[in-house]
Nucleic acid binder design. Structure first.
Lengths: 106, 106
DNA sequence: ATTAACCTTGACAATTTGGCCAAATAAGCA
DNA sequence: TGCTTATTTGGCCAAATTGTCAAGGTTAAT
């Protein structure tokens, strides 16, 4: 793998890594239904505010969400909704794996 | 986030995490053009065999690739080709981010 | 001018990940 | 059997990730 190829896949991995975390997937899923402030998201996730804030920063740095401050609140919105397409593929991987495991049991 | 939701997103994250690594993305990309043995993949990646083998194990455990031993070699094949669809979305995230950055410079 | 609400950042400990080497395992062949 | 090739596994270490608490910054309201 040459330097250039390496760099290309590294850039791709950076974006995928950004959404590859249970909490961040949850955030993306929630934001797919509209913008939310950090306080709402914190409530939903049920973790420390600082933890949620950091997860949102990671998503923002990857270019997946955008933030906008209005008054004392910061609203986050999904910027690249194509990531939602990942979900159906992931589901099908899970389904197929389960099916295959069931098959092995018989 | 209740226990059940947590579990669902955890399962999804496990699969996404499996491909979120430069080397593993490269492997998936290569396998999209047909099955390859570990020795071929090791050659292409240019890392230690054991390292490549471990990456392949991760992809296998996630249900993304399947392995088949033939003689002394082990061939890996892409089992869920829908993961290839991720690439175009990731590319568009990258493009858009770059475009926005260029805009900021002016 | 204080106070309160909201969010981000820094420091820190705990855990996980990634990579290499060496050793173990498996299959084919002389 | 003994040797070679192909692959996996275990051990180890460095680096990255995660989560929490404490501290700091910003905006709005009293």
């Amino acid at each position: 793998m040459d330097r250039k190829t390496q760099a290309r896949f590294q850039a791709r991995a950076k974006i995928l890594k950004a959404i590859s975390h249970p909490t961040r997937l949850f955030l993306v899923d929630e934001l797919s239904r509209g913008e939310r402030c950090v306080c709402e998201l914190t409530e939903l996730v049920g973790a420390d505010v600082s933890t949620v804030s950091k997860h949102l920063t990671i998503l923002k740095n990857a270019g997946i969400v955008a933030d906008e401050k209005r008054g004392t609140k910061v609203f986050y919105a999904l910027r690249m909704s194509c990531v939602l397409n990942f979900f159906s593929c992931v589901e099908s991987v899970m389904e197929r794996t389960t099916r295959d495991q069931v098959k092995l049991l018989r």
